[in-house]
Amino acid sequence: MSSQDPTIKLLLIGPSNSGKTALLLRYVDDIFDTDNATATIGVDFKVKKVSVKGKPHRLLLFDTAGQERFRTLTSSYYRNAQGVILVYDVSNRESFLSMGHWFGEAETYASPGVIKCLVGSKIDRVGSRTVKREEGEALAKKYGATFYECSSKTRQNIREPFVTTVDRIVDTPQLMDPALLGRRDGTVALRPRTDEEIANSGCSC
């Protein structure tokens, strides 16, 4: 990790097929790929450079790697996250009804004070909407989250959830405290070794 810019870690959670990966890919790479709606295999997270109040920040965006399907997300997934984006599908009522579970997960495993943003996705599916905007707003309010409805297909409101969440994080000094970011007092930096070091290490023990 060469960049010295402050790093912000955001997570996406929510039920299967709610549009998490689509939202992520549209935001980071401006891709909307209906045929290949799975996360990139082999890569843990995506990086996006963002500017907050004129200052560059490095945004790390973590997707669920499909672990939400069998509800086997690890609690370690939530480590040191400053923001959580919870995504449901406005055309799938069941996905909305499961959001209580996902808010519960975030409160149990993420750092106290983590910034939450609720997102209703796929609003382009006008005809098949089963969750009203007001319902989403009310749920977000209940859990102290901001709320957006968006469409990865039409790009509508794609940036807002991320931008708002990042702004709120940067405005919360306790969340920008290095101790929360895994750079605790006692943390040893294990820099990846250079090739030369690896070559010299052999089988030393």
Binding site: I41, G42, T74, R184, T187
Partner: peptide, 26 residues
Amino acid sequence: IAYGGSAELCQVFSRAAAVAGGVNVL
């Protein structure tokens, strides 16, 4: 390793397995 030693390791590895395309079911 903070947050539980090898217990944390097991979790991180299980996620890494999912990232690599595997499926975990508990």
